[in-house]
Amino acid sequence: MEEMPRQLIDAARQGSERALARLISHVEDRRPGWKDAMKAMYPHTGRACVIGITGSPGAGKSTLVSEIALRLATSGLTIGIVAVDPSSPFSGGALLGDRVRMRGISAASGVFIRSMATRGVLGGLCQAAKDVVRIMDFARKDVILIETVGVGQDEIEVVGAADHVMLVTFPGGGDGIQAIKAGVMEIADLFVVNKADRGGADETASEIAAMLELSSEGQAGKPPVFTVSALNGDGLTDLTAALRGYINRKKAGPVLEQAHVRREILGILEREVTCLIRERVASNGNMEACIARIMAGTSDPYTAADEIIALFAPASRIKGGMP
């Protein structure tokens, strides 16, 4: 028995966790009516402050996220957390274990955690995560924290779409610095060296500060670097204060950026068009015919792609050659 999205939308807006959770599944699974649901919610969104959190494995992101969430929640803010983990490329399944590290958050604290698998195959993790964030925003969450393992391009894009990006590393983890070099640095607004209880954190922090000095030459304002211990709470007050600054600024009014809107439309289209093509070629036998020709040596994958595109847009001038 499937509830109508309409009912779910109303209930989620009124604070039903169950409705919010089901709505997310509905959209994540791309079940019939998902897009209409998003259209209905869109006008009521844009209020929440979205913070992306990434960093190398072992940096203690989940523990940190849960500590931050608890601190913000006690000051009366409503919090949503999206924890992204990779799907298995072999089975399509996933083992989502971030809740293990978020045990401090009890049922009563009003924090909504949703684990999300990358699901991969159809691409567009970024859009799927944006949808989930938007639904939480619609359900009146003030702050939404998205956590990913900062390894794949997909994951980097996910946090990149947030209002602010926090990069978490830890002392001694040589790959902590490596991850920064891998291109996340440019999008991060604040840096956190976690696990300060273990020593060596100050060295790591000054190393990062030095790197920022180099890269931000000539620009106004360098991103701040915080040294914290999610384990014993050191430094979390300062970090949370910085986040409150972001949250208050966002409350002053939602800001739409042209570039973001453009990227989002393209993102939705990419996924939609891919789905459409896959569905069509799978059902009308075109794909099998192309494969057979290539196997027989009478065609090639490039020609096949052109032929399939021509079926959709006969008038289009998309061709493989140079313009």
């Binding site: 523990t63 083992l95 971030d98 384990l231 014993n232």
Partner: peptide, 11 residues
């Protein structure tokens, strides 16, 4: 309070 609590391992 002084030592903190052990964190379980994520699989």
């Amino acid at each position: 309070e002084v030592f903190g609590e052990a964190q379980p391992v994520k699989l």
